[in-house]
């Protein structure tokens, strides 16, 4: 009897968890969930981009070794790629979220391009070029931060 009761409890827990996961994974995207995803993407891209800028500036000032800057830029690239993937996962459900996507998607492309430029400068350029490319990415970083603050 005791084993049967435990079995019933376990089956009920499995059913509730299964149902919950099923509901969450098939629920259509609404404004709130899209906004959360978009802000999360922008935050990841912002962190990745600024981290890449900081690593580049630190390398230009000889404060970190080149392998560390290369590794950090690789992490930045992964963060921005992850942000792009997250944004593309769901279609925007209404006009407001479509406007959000139209604002954010180009920013993510620019952030990716900025990191590519910094990687090139680490591989082939000098300290001056590295600083210049890091500074050139400031407007994109500022825009991403504004996006997070506005919609977050």
């Amino acid at each position: 009897m005791r084993a049967r009761a435990w079995g019933a409890v376990a089956a009920a827990v499995v059913a509730v968890v299964w149902g919950g996961v099923g509901y969450l994974s098939t629920r259509p995207t609404d404004f709130h969930s899209y906004r959360v995803a978009a802000v999360g993407s922008a935050q990841s891209a912002y962190t990745g981009l600024v981290s890449g800028q900081q690593a580049s500036r630190a390398l230009a000032a000889s404060r970190i070794p080149p392998p560390m800057a290369t590794a950090m830029l690789g992490d930045s690239r992964s963060a921005i790629a992850g942000a792009q993937k997250r944004l593309a996962r769901d279609a925007p459900p209404d006009e407001r979220t479509t406007a959000m996507r139209d604002e954010l998607a180009p920013l993510l492309l620019q952030a990716d391009a900025a990191i590519s430029g910094l990687e090139d400068a680490v591989a082939h350029g000098g300290a001056v070029e590295l600083r210049a490319r890091a500074d050139a990415a400031d407007p994109v970083a500022d825009h991403l931060r504004r996006f997070v603050e506005e919609h977050g």
Partner: peptide, 25 residues
């Protein structure tokens, strides 16, 4: 102060480089 998050180990240790250079790192 700049609204950045920490997602990687590199970001966690970078402040030591900013403060003390390659020796700090």
């Amino acid at each position: 102060p700049i609204g950045m998050r920490v997602d990687t180990l590199g970001q966690a240790v970078l402040p030591a480089g900013m403060a003390l250079g390659e020796l700090g790192i």
